[in-house]
Amino acid sequence: MTTAPILTARGLAKEFRGFRAVDGVDLDVAEGKVHALVGPNGAGKTTLFNLLTGFLKPTTGRITVGGRDLTGKNPEQVARHGVARSFQITSLFPQMSARGHLELALASPTPLGWRFWRSDRLLARYRDRALELLDQVGLADHAEMPAGNLAYGRKRALELALALALDPKVLLLDEPTAGMGLEDVDRTVRLIQQVREGRTVVLVEHNMKVVSSLADQVTVLQHGQVLVEGPYAEIRHDPRVISAYLGDADVAH
């Protein structure tokens, strides 16, 4: 890694009533790379993700994005500092159209949301950009459909478009292919490959095929700590990684 890290974590820890879900994690995400966080269930991936996006406050440790300290900031402040996230469980506004979602996301850096005395038709000024983003994720034909009526794969695509609408420096994707059929997984991988251009992506993912085809760098977590870090080709044969996964499989089945 020669490029400077855009997102760093130092000694990041989160304790829930004595249980350390994330336990002293150091992380450097290089600018312009796709960085995957993997690990067995309960390794602390989602907790780490929530710490990085401000949804949880760390017990100790520091987070910086682009050199700016974001430790302890609210989710909305983190979002404004250029870190956009998607959710593991699809998280949308069921009655709002796909286009409505994107208009809202595009309006968020502006003070338009406070204008309670103006007509909501003003949001139509983001219409063109919203349709462009929908087209990018293959939802151009579903712009007017309420999000609640979209098929699962399309909801995930809308999630991605929402994150992109914030034009983030760092895009954090929480299991973007969770619960998808093979066809949707391939489509999503192609989509992420397409949108990663010029962006930094941090990705929590279970599907090793997805990780191998997307990630430049992989961090393997276990028991809230970093087990191994390196390019996918290196870590896949690491005996510690194999035993971590097999050990988990034994517990799960």
């Binding site: 989710p75 909305e76 979002a79 956009a84 998280s91 069921p94 809202l104 850096p109």
Partner: peptide
């Protein structure tokens, strides 16, 4: 409808 999502959008 979804406060967490609104937060993640920066509101």
């Amino acid at each position: 409808d979804n406060p967490s999502r609104a937060r993640a959008l920066g509101y």
